[in-house]
């Protein structure tokens, strides 16, 4: 599962770091570091973290990683 955090929105509430500590971690007082590609085992926790974010800054794949985009073939 791929994810991205809109760090313009993020205000360091750290809800995600509590709910999915293997994916999100605070770095310094209010900075956030996250793993851009999480293991399938994290799916549930990741969904909780995305839902709990007070500023809704977390975007997780809405579709399974598409096969369409992996080659230069037409």
């Amino acid at each position: 599962m791929r994810l991205v955090v809109d760090l313009n929105r993020c205000q360091g509430y750290a809800q995600c770091a509590f709910l999915a500590p293997d994916v999100f971690a605070m770095h310094g007082e209010e900075g956030l570091l996250y793993t851009p590609e999480a293991d399938e085992a994290q799916r549930e926790k990741l969904a909780q973290a995305a839902a709990a974010c007070p500023v809704q800054a977390i975007l997780v794949d809405a579709v399974d990683p598409p096969a369409e985009a992996v080659s230069g073939e037409r």
Binding site: R2, L3, L59, V63, P66, E68, S71
Partner: peptide
């Protein structure tokens, strides 16, 4: 492993590289 998550399927023709 920093590919962007997708909001939806695109049904696009990709000419990459």
């Amino acid at each position: 492993r920093t590919a962007l998550p997708r909001r939806r399927a695109l049904d696009a023709t990709w000419r990459l590289g």
